[in-house]
Design a protein around this nucleic acid. Sequence first.
DNA 1: GAAACGTGGGT
DNA 2: TACCCAAGTTT
Length: 353
Amino acid sequence: MSEIADKLIDWYGVNGRDLPWRRTRDPYRIWLSEVILQQTRIAQGMDYYLRFVARFPDVGALAAADEDEVLKLWQGLGYYSRARNLHAAARQVVERYGGRFPAAYADVRSLKGVGDYTAAAVCSIAYDAPCAVVDGNVYRVLSRLFDLDLAIDTAEGRKAFAALADEQLDRRRPARYNQAIMDFGALQCTPANPSCNDCPLRDECLSLAAGTVAERPVKAGRTRIRPRYLNYLHLECGGRIALRRRPEGDIWQGLYDLPAIESDRPLDFTELAAAPPFRDMFGTLPYRLVRTIRMPKHQLSHQTLHAAYHRLALDAWPSAAGGWTLVPYEQLEDYAIPRLLDRYFERIGNSDS
DNA sequence: GAAACGTGGGT
DNA sequence: TACCCAAGTTT
């Protein structure tokens, strides 16, 4: 009967957002929304959610789809393992639970791509199970409320915050409480410039009293970002373009991309053409360099991509083409591609020119 | 258990 | 410009 929970829920009643996935108790749709919203803002994920629900109204429809179609629908959202896991999990639901979405926390948690947060969100929101969600909002709200300087990105910190979140959970109405604290974190107790003035919890907020609001939550580490230099080959022959599926163990797994030769520094085309990987690929095969386009830096969460696209017109495909998918330009739109390549195609005018 | 994994928006 | 952040999970 926490006073804090009551105030959060009162706040939510007035300020809570009206969102499509809050108008249903369908666990499938709630799960779908939660996966889409992992590390993703509502504004960015909204259209994807609506398109997924329209195309895959239930978990069986998703399970029946090809992975490539799921990835295509996911194109542009990022963290593509989410899409692959989403699809795999749908098939797990069909195989293990006869197509009926599981309700038990352990069963939900066992699905691919479902971690502690998502399992708690689905079970609490769809079934009102007493599972406390711990997401970025919860870390921030609780660390401020209790003025905790424990780093949230350490094992110890995560454990402590999970215990605290569980303590604070309103067990009479877990669904409402969980959504309330997350919305509160997103709209009121924001990372920068939180609205402490009109905050309903200003009387009980220890960090506000201590003047440490801006220093909460505490984070320990910083992972560094490495640069990569990608020399792409836009190869065309007979109205077709060479695509290659991104391999396991690298960025954009499962998406389609152009063949590329990576280097440890920027290369102009002459240097690239002299490099062994290029010579191995082409040998004496003739080509005509149509043009080179250097893209602006493409920033990932952990890599800075420096990409150059060299467009080569060929009379015949090199033998390396065996590992490529040779796609007529008009079918390019059927393939899921990274944002970077999308931007390249935009730059050169979609299909031709 | 630290690092990998996208993209876009905000300050 | 250069960070930080966003309803995290996997390896």
